[in-house]
Design a binder for these strands. Sequence first.
DNA 1: AAAATAGTGTCTGTAAGACATTATCTA
DNA 2: TAGATAATGTCTTACAGACACTATTTT
Lengths: 270, 270
Amino acid sequence: MAKDRKKPKRQGSGRDSPTEAAERSHVMPLASGPDGPGGFGPDDRPGVIVTVDVVLLALRNGELSTLLVKRGREPHQGAWALPGTVVESGEGLVPAATRAVAGRTGVAVEPERLEQLVTFADPDRDPRARVLSVGFVAVVERATPPAGGEVASGRWWAVGDVLVEKGPTMAFDHRDILGAGVEMVAEKFERSDLASGMIEEPFTLGDLRRAYEAVWGTSLEPANFRRKILATPSFVEPTGLLRDVTTGRPAVLYRRGGGVRLHPPLARPD
Amino acid sequence: MAKDRKKPKRQGSGRDSPTEAAERSHVMPLASGPDGPGGFGPDDRPGVIVTVDVVLLALRNGELSTLLVKRGREPHQGAWALPGTVVESGEGLVPAATRAVAGRTGVAVEPERLEQLVTFADPDRDPRARVLSVGFVAVVERATPPAGGEVASGRWWAVGDVLVEKGPTMAFDHRDILGAGVEMVAEKFERSDLASGMIEEPFTLGDLRRAYEAVWGTSLEPANFRRKILATPSFVEPTGLLRDVTTGRPAVLYRRGGGVRLHPPLARPD
DNA sequence: AAAATAGTGTCTGTAAGACATTATCTA
DNA sequence: TAGATAATGTCTTACAGACACTATTTT
């Protein structure tokens, strides 16, 4: 029988009175002076700058690619950075990330596509100040070119060219954020239909398979892949249409299904 | 064939010069005045307070349990909170989380056991100021009672009693952080030997199975569980000893193996 | 016809679910 | 002895890997 999570016995001393350690568990009032050891007043408060940085992933010529921005200013001038922005006061993280992407590509990423990834806050990651970065990842179905004109310092890179010994210099810890984003997406591909968000509708099962192959860096057996996808209810829906081809048998076109959890997961080779 | 991630073609305009949007992708110098639209000077800089909050998980009487702290001050006075602390200037997130736990339990959680979970930064989550919280989760093998004396406002709770309609009032968004922590641990149990970090050495396979059952809230077939664990190299190592029992056949005692990735995962029922 | 890509069928091995049976202890 | 828990064995089913084969198009 399973435990069903009820009735803990009370334990511990049971004292509920305020203590210094209890108060340190959350912030002190801001406008008052020091309030016991560990408190902080208005002048020594550790104000931190919060940024968001977005790993945007799309397929470009069949390759997993990400949008990077060349920095025009120190620190890390000339290095490549993830699109990001400072979070404004009163602004949530997801809106800030949406804004950062929109400023880059002119494309509005739906908030639901932004997945929070990891937060980096090493004290020395920015030499100017304490800067905390919340990383996001978003899979998009088209590698929209960066908005033209004056904001043209962005460029899509093949991920495999970036995450490599002799890859381009990346700003801050953005290489780590990118690596974490790619790995997170690779893992989500195993259990969800996220891959279908990386290709344009309508798509063939070959398109879908190639998205998996690009993200996982492996090849998949087409027949077995097809069997798994079609055996999963509402992963994809047939449109009844066929793709025009220049060679070979025309493939059936599908659109995304209602969203799905893969049980058991689609196994990643290796 | 798999894509092997090479040679993107350059695209986009290729301009690398600084632009407003490029600069907004990271922070402005702090000590200078406003530096174009979107920049910020020393007075309007959005200083954010950063805290860490830790979901500590252990078994207590066979139930998945977590340590909560009763708040002695507004906001949310009297509500239960995760142990946490403000991150000090120059301090990393993991040291801060370690410190928060040590202040609660007197136990030093090894940094490797602290897994970053999710960051909450809703602008309204704390009425006093913009406070960002980075959630951590740590699995420990003993529900060490809170340090006694003056820091005795902490208490272990059965998770099932907390994450329930009529559970205790929780401060801020700590209920969400707790829920995310439990779910993350449940998922890690499928693919890793994390469960063995939740029980004291030496342990029996029954102990290990009950850890899974407590975290997953299900029951597992003992014979099949045993087969899976023992078929996985270096998940556990036999000690050669037997457990003293009051009833039933004595069970073989094991210690943790070298750490492992489960392929395929240990399937969670449902 | 040849080349190319899409799609089907089938065999096999691995591993999980279910559950019966045996082993070893205490009361 | 009964009762309890640990450990083994075995049957069956689900599903993934491998791969042969068929289908439909362009050149």
